[in-house]
């Protein structure tokens, strides 16, 4: 199994505050890796630093053998990395289809039609709502749209920032089922989550982040039964 993306001793500062402290982790090709942690642990910072927002101050982000830590966001996006950002961030005034078309920006419109049909097969709800304004959809549908939009750039590695944020438990279940389906097509997924239970059950491997540091690493199953993780993130016993 080859490593697709790797963080090597990455430091990130916001002014005088250090948000990431010597973070090292890796994502292997074809797997679902997850990063769990509490609010403010630095999870989203880590994900955004891949796109240079903020820039890392030391260390390396290796993607397919190349250090991308100083590349521009559109370089990263056009080389097979796609992100569904925290809080979904769909374009509220645009229709569902226009949102999907926005996802093709890094690679151009050549496959737009074909990929859009693929997305509608994966997310039948979006097909029903394709001409609707995105802001008029429910939270779950908006999350589906955010994921579909990310997939429109034909990524090698899909980065997801808290897809369960603000969704009802039953919808969260649906979203994770969809992620499983996406992964079964061979997509590599790196999932950043607070919902540790769902994330660890889905993931092949997991990392636990506390105050900008990687505290623990292991397979999803290992972490799920780890007493420390259970205490901290899974609501005790």
């Amino acid at each position: 199994m080859t490593t697709l993306m790797e963080f090597k001793d990455v430091d990130v500062y916001y002014g005088p505050i250090q948000a990431l402290k010597k973070v090292s982790l890796s994502v292997n090709e074809g797997e679902i890796a997850t990063l769990i942690g509490a609010n403010g642990a630095g999870k989203s910072t880590l994900l955004m630093s891949i796109f240079g927002q903020p820039r890392i101050s030391s260390g390396e982000i290796i993607y397919r053998g190349e250090d991308i830590s100083q590349k521009s966001a559109h370089y990263v996006a056009s080389h097979g990395l796609a992100q569904s950002p925290e809080g979904r961030r769909i374009f509220p005034g645009m229709s569902v289809e226009e949102n999907l078309l926005m996802g093709t920006i890094p690679i151009g419109m050549d496959h737009a039609e074909e990929d859009m049909q693929r997305m509608f097969e994966l997310f039948p709800r979006l097909l029903e709502r394709r001409n609707q304004r995105a802001s008029t959809m429910s939270g779950g549908e908006q999350q589906m749209l955010a994921i579909a939009r990310a997939l429109m750039s034909r990524p090698k590695l899909l980065l997801l920032d808290e897809p369960s944020l603000g969704l009802a438990p039953i919808i969260v279940k649906q979203i994770f089922q969809i992620l499983k389906d996406v992964a079964s097509t061979g997509m590599t997924i790196f999932l950043v989550e607070q919902n540790a239970n769902h994330a660890l059950k889905l993931a092949d491997r997991g990392y636990v982040m506390v105050n900008g540091e990687i505290r623990m690493a292991g397979t999803g199953q290992e972490l799920l039964v780890n007493p420390e993780v259970r205490d901290a993130y899974l609501g005790g016993h």
Partner: peptide
């Protein structure tokens, strides 16, 4: 898209 959500645009690599 830039008018509607700049952060989303950046995450799309615009």
């Amino acid at each position: 898209a830039l008018r509607e959500d700049e952060i989303a645009c950046r995450s799309l690599g615009l």
